[in-house]
Nucleic acid binder design. Sequence first.
RNA 1: GGCGGGUUGGCGGAGAGGUUACGCAGCGGAUUGCAAAUCCGUGAAGACCGGUUCGAUUCCGGUACCCGCCUCCA
Length: 464
Amino acid sequence: MVEIKLTNTRTRRKEAFAPIDPDRVRMYLCGPTVYDRAHLGNARPVVVFDVLYRLLRHVYGEDRVTYVRNFTDVDDKINARAAETGRPIRDITDETIGWYHDDMDALGARRPDHEPRATDYISQMIAMTADLIAKGHAYEAEGHVLFDVRSFPDYGRLSGRSVDDMIAGARVEVAPFKRDPMDFVLWKPSPGDLPGWDSPWGRGRPGWHIECSAMSQALLGDSFDIHGGGIDLQFPHHENEIAQSCCANPHADFARVWLHNEMLQVEGRKMSKSLGNFFTVRDLLDQGIPGEVIRFVFLMTHYRKPMDWTAEKAREAEATLRRWHALVAGAEDRGIVDAGIVDLLADDLNTAGALARLHAMARELVEDQSPDGAGKGVFLASARLLGLMLPGMDGWLAAGPDLSALAARLVRLREEAKATRDFAALDAFKAALIDAGVTIRMNRDGVELDPSPSFDAAKLDALP
RNA sequence: GGCGGGUUGGCGGAGAGGUUACGCAGCGGAUUGCAAAUCCGUGAAGACCGGUUCGAUUCCGGUACCCGCCUCCA
């Protein structure tokens, strides 16, 4: 069996991975709050975990991995969206979940085995909250239930900080009913116009962190293998999850391995609305940047490093994918994956290294004359382990504009030029096509035209 | 202020204590009526200062700069 190594945020080391149950790998990823389209940064952990999911399925068996990713469908941002639009909350969350599925599907991300909605697990959250009160780790105050961070000595261990240090930093919400400024909400009261559920502490709604503790327990058990998300979630979200789950189940491990991806930047700067460089996955797809290209750009950078989204990278990725698709056109994926690719991914998800390996394989394939195309099949299967070149994912290659009329004109001009030995008109036409971003392939047999990444239909329309 | 990450050739971006990363761009060549596309080849690096070592870009310490988290955030 291939040994998978992962960098565990909890221990700050790269460790050999071994599932608690050798026959079942269990992983949990913190999913989106569903009030709007997923922005590009939201997509990074999805792609990172999708590669891990594919790797685990490859190594342990397709039916031996359980992947859970939640939808947070109770949240003040959702409430605010409902208030400003006058729409029912359920409409908003249902619509947003549909968008999320569309957009993540476009990136080639497999759907997780379970996608629980927080609102379907309210009773479990109430039960865990009550249990934490009973065990002396939480207390009720003015209709709220708060977790008592001083009752959990390990609080802060994941993120390497102490309660005292954080208080010294003094950026904590001031609430007079908290015993300690770092105490966080497990349950809070809901007025009549907000979503609420009956509880022992009155009508209310859960705090943000408790849902992941309750849902992971319900679907994966008290102890499971891998828990992940963006590094920004390390504190406070994951710290609070650990506090809740470990106090509720003191004899369990909760999550063994914590995996955090670094953040995304855009053209070297943090993506933010104020900088005007904020955009969603859908924005890119609508601009004609294929999901496969977006994924490729993500894979170019190791998940533990900040990833910079740039137009130049998208251009490079698209050109590479076009070449690879052409290279293995018609090849058959027989499920045989290159061992080098597996080893690279097994080494803490070295996706950039795996892409380099694919480049090397592609170079060898150019000279591969084997009649059965076995090498190309291996290439295809290996790319698919990265979630690239999946069945149906190449639609964007053919989805361009119809250039057949232009191709016919080019053929005609070429024949005329060869007959007359006057190439001026032909050359002018080719130059215009290239200027408009059309890739030209000419040989004895004929002419092929394809839009390149710099394709500009307006320039074609301007052709005489 | 506290915690954490980073700094590699023109650009992007990996691994490895000693041997070519790789991709893009550039340059040279093949091919072509000429090109484009494709293919082949190729120069170019390791922020700064110390230390360990026969040998460090790779390990250790320090400096500088950059970034993230500590507040909803992936």
